[in-house]
Amino acid sequence: MTDPVRVLVCDDQALIRTGFTTIIGAQPDLDVVGECGDGRTAIDLARELTPDIVVMDVRMPVLDGIEATRLLAGAGVPNPIKVLVVTTFNLDEYVYEALRAGASGFLLKDAPPAQLLHGIRTVATGAALLAPEVTRRLVGMYAARIRPAEDNPDDVPLTPRELEVLRLIADGLSNSEIAATLILSPETVKTYVSRILTKLDLRDRVQAVVYAYRTGLAN
């Protein structure tokens, strides 16, 4: 049998933290190994407990979730730990910074329990999770900020079809939604996504979204 996914929950609101812990802990394939209320403790516990995923709030005392994410999952971190950020719409900019810090995905705090569980399982597989409504609102809002002048969309080493898929990823569509839009099979879309990530040397769909906006391929 596959070992349960080990989850660390970090949120400074005790009620939310307890709710997440209860929901996650009730699943046979998930195991809550710890919980805490600030980013510094999250880092200490992550190093001690070695969870597979940290469910991370953004605004917290001592050390915020953005910096904690950077220290746990950022570029150059040895043995990085996957981070799933949870936030609310009025923290858009913070979530964008967390994405750049290395988060593998983000969800809204008012998402239904099933969506939270799906998010944890998705990130655990090595995939990224982008809530479409957050992607459109958040990345679109800050697109100008993340598009450096030196990036040239003409240099993108993708085929026309791969560019189509990349733009739809940037719109926050899932593989099944992309398949329906382009009239392709989900398996074919999965292959295209894999090729895009490989060609562009990107870690996951989150980085693909940032890349699409940086190069001006999405707007």
Rank of each mutant, 00 (worst) to 15 (best):
V32L: 06
E48P: 06
V32S: 02
A73F: 01
Y192I: 04
V85T: 01
L182P: 04
G65C: 01
Q115G: 05
A128E: 00
T87M: 03
P113A: 10
T159Q: 13
G74Q: 02
V206T: 05
E93F: 06
V7W: 03
V139K: 01
V54M: 10
I24N: 00
E67P: 03
R147Y: 06
L182S: 11
R145H: 13
D3L: 10
T122G: 08
T87I: 05
A73Y: 01
V95K: 00
D155I: 07
G102P: 00
N175I: 10
L173D: 04
L45P: 04
D151W: 12
I178W: 07
K199P: 08
E162I: 09
A144E: 14
L117H: 10
L129Q: 05
Q207I: 03
L107I: 15
P186C: 08
A149K: 14
I146D: 02
G19F: 09
A131Q: 15
I81Y: 00
V9D: 01
V165M: 09
G65S: 07
T188C: 07
Y96A: 12
G65F: 00
E164M: 13
P157I: 07
A46T: 15
Q27T: 05
A73N: 09
R205L: 05
L197F: 11
N219E: 14
A46L: 09
F89T: 08
K199M: 07
G105D: 03
L15R: 12
A208K: 04
P148R: 13
E150T: 14
D29L: 09
Q207P: 02
L173S: 11
R100W: 06
I43S: 00
L84D: 01
G76C: 04
Q207N: 11
V33L: 10
R121P: 00
P148S: 09
P113M: 05
A114C: 06
E133G: 06
A73G: 13
P186S: 13
L72M: 14
G126T: 02
A42Q: 03
R161T: 15
S194V: 08
A68N: 01
D11N: 14
A124T: 03
K82Y: 05
Y211K: 01
V123I: 14
I81K: 00
T181W: 11
Q115D: 15
D11K: 01
E67R: 10
L84R: 01
I120T: 03
E164A: 14
Y192H: 15
